[in-house]
Amino acid sequence: MDVTRRVPEHVAIIMDGNGRWAKMRGYPRTMGHRKGVEAVREAVRVAGDLGISYLTLFAFSSENWTRPETEVNDLMGLLKAFIRRDLAELHRENVRIRIIGARDNMPGDVLPLLLEAEETTKDNSGLTLVIAFNYGSRDEIARAARKLAARVAAGELSVEAITPVAFARELDTFGIPDPDLIIRTSGEERLSNFLLWQAAYAELLFIPDFWPDFSRETFMAALESFARRERRFGGVDPVAAAVSR
């Protein structure tokens, strides 16, 4: 199947299984995370090659801070190394970087790098790479609700004006279209507090591959699966409706 005929505008990926990939091979978990960075680079290349407009990667959840300190420190180190090493190349490739997630409790040496990546690439017009860092969808929704509640309390907004569109404007993803396809690796079949509002009509695909094994071929197979699906967004298939009359 020629997937380029029906490429999703926005693909989001829950990159899961780094630790299990390492454990199966007798490596420390940190090795799985390092191998996972290579998979990130490959996913970005494929998305850019195919003309996908938005690629969102769940890099670090707001719950991941509960992991062992050594693992968290390694993940922070990998993130910083990725930005320092890859930012120039991503900029040359016309990639725009967007960061979503809470920013008030980020490590002091991480936030400036993320802000620099956004600022450096803000005018690029190619693939938008959305990095979900310190992100949790329930937290995002709660923060949006607090913003709207404050505006109501201040008399700036009526309760009746709080519509789904108005609510979406307060989310971290404002200006980013909802994902068409959400992929989760490692065989787990749940969203794990990722893009819960935005996933309302997303196609979900759960694949057994651990994230470090995510390759161009894996990505292409996922896009082929998406291309075969029929999306009705709550409506009725016109052909099926005609047959049922």
Rank of each mutant, 00 (worst) to 15 (best):
L113V: 06
L113T: 06
L114F: 08
L114E: 05
L114C: 12
L115M: 14
E116C: 00
E116K: 12
A117N: 05
A117W: 02
E118M: 15
E118L: 08
E118K: 03
E119R: 13
T120L: 15
T120C: 08
T121P: 05
K122N: 06
D123A: 13
D123L: 12
N124G: 11
N124K: 10
S125L: 12
G126T: 02
L127A: 06
L127E: 04
T128D: 09
T128Y: 07
L129S: 08
L129V: 08
V130F: 02
V130Y: 01
V130M: 03
I131W: 01
A132F: 00
N134C: 10
N134S: 15
N134Y: 04
Y135C: 12
Y135K: 09
G136K: 04
G136Q: 05
S137Q: 03
R138K: 13
D139Y: 01
D139P: 00
D139C: 02
E140F: 04
E140Y: 03
A142Q: 05
A142D: 05
A142T: 11
A144K: 05
A145I: 09
K147Y: 00
K147Q: 14
K147C: 06
K147M: 13
L148A: 11
L148W: 02
A149Q: 11
A149D: 10
A149G: 10
A149P: 06
A149Y: 01
A150F: 03
A150S: 15
A150D: 15
A150I: 00
R151D: 15
V152Q: 07
V152T: 06
A153P: 02
A153L: 13
A154L: 12
A154H: 08
A154Q: 14
A154K: 12
A154R: 13
A154M: 08
G155K: 09
G155H: 07
L157T: 07
L157Q: 10
V159P: 01
V159S: 12
V159H: 05
V159C: 09
E160Y: 04
E160N: 11
A161V: 00
I162S: 10
I162K: 08
